[in-house]
């Protein structure tokens, strides 16, 4: 049976790359004693897949993986058994059983929410309004086939200030806070297209926005957190934990 597990990744574990996180979970599931299914063959592998890799340096409160279990002891039991095996910074948030016909998370991902926390500049609110009023925002993107130009405006579904300067303890973020900028940290929420069709990274949006207003976002002084991932169901975006 298919089980979808949601977890968060915060603090120092954000420097651990996707492949290492996969290995980490394979071992954690073994330690937990949960009844996961294995492939056949000489070297047996757990049937386990992740929704979307998270870039090194990003935090998340909305990561997903799908696992095939032989038996399912229930959501609470799975969360409890796995949480006993977690390293500091990684927490299992939920575990739900999917119908056997459900598609895997990786193929479902259509959008994701992020919050980017960085030092706000004077007049950022107005700048953001102007940015969002643009009909098209063309950026060049390096792909396997060289440079291409894409319009990112249609794949920015939402962008707004959700945390005002003064509401964030910048010292606790774990980023390189520029001197004098301690109190200016705020957070911008973004809902962006994600997944195989059009994958838009929040850093690209932030850099484009900042550059357009004559600022730089400060690569190492900002912290991005992925909040949620969505599937498209009947023309609506539904969180992966409810998309089946």
């Amino acid at each position: 049976m298919k089980i979808r597990i949601k977890f968060s990744k915060k603090g120092t574990v954000r420097y651990i790359g996707h492949l290492d996180i996969m290995r980490y979970f394979q071992k954690a599931i073994r330690r937990s004693g949960l009844d996961i299914a294995y492939t056949n063959g000489f070297h047996k592998h757990q049937i386990l897949s992740f929704a979307a890799p998270l870039g090194v340096g990003l935090e998340s409160s909305g990561e997903y993986m799908d696992a095939e279990f032989n038996s399912f002891p229930g959501p609470e039991a799975v969360c409890a058994s796995l949480n006993k095996e977690m390293a500091e910074g990684i927490e299992i948030l939920s575990a739900i059983q999917l119908p056997d016909t459900a598609k895997n998370a990786m193929s479902q991902v259509a959008a994701a929410d992020y919050i980017v926390r960085f030092p706000f500049w004077e007049g950022l609110q107005e700048d953001l309004e102007r940015f969002l009023a643009l009909e098209s925002i063309v950026v060049s993107k390096t792909t396997k086939n060289g440079e291409t130009e894409i319009d990112i405006r249609p794949i920015i579904y939402e962008m707004k200030i959700t945390e005002l300067p003064g509401s964030i303890d910048s010292a606790a973020l774990g980023v390189d806070v520029p001197e004098g900028a301690e109190a200016s940290y705020g957070g911008i929420f973004m809902k962006l297209s994600s997944g195989s069709r059009a994958n838009l990274k929040p850093e690209l949006v932030l850099n484009t926005f900042a550059a357009g207003c004559g600022h730089t976002a400060g690569e190492f002084s900002s912290l991005t957190e992925r909040l949620e991932m969505y599937a498209e169901v009947g023309g609506r975006l539904v969180p992966l934990s409810e998309a089946f």
Binding site: T12, Y15, I16, D20, V56, G57, E88, G89, V175, F220
Partner: peptide, 20 residues
Amino acid sequence: LNNEILLTVDKPVRYLGNEI
């Protein structure tokens, strides 16, 4: 190590500790 260093060097996971 600060954020910049950890995001610049190869395999920052070498320097974190916190393993199981």
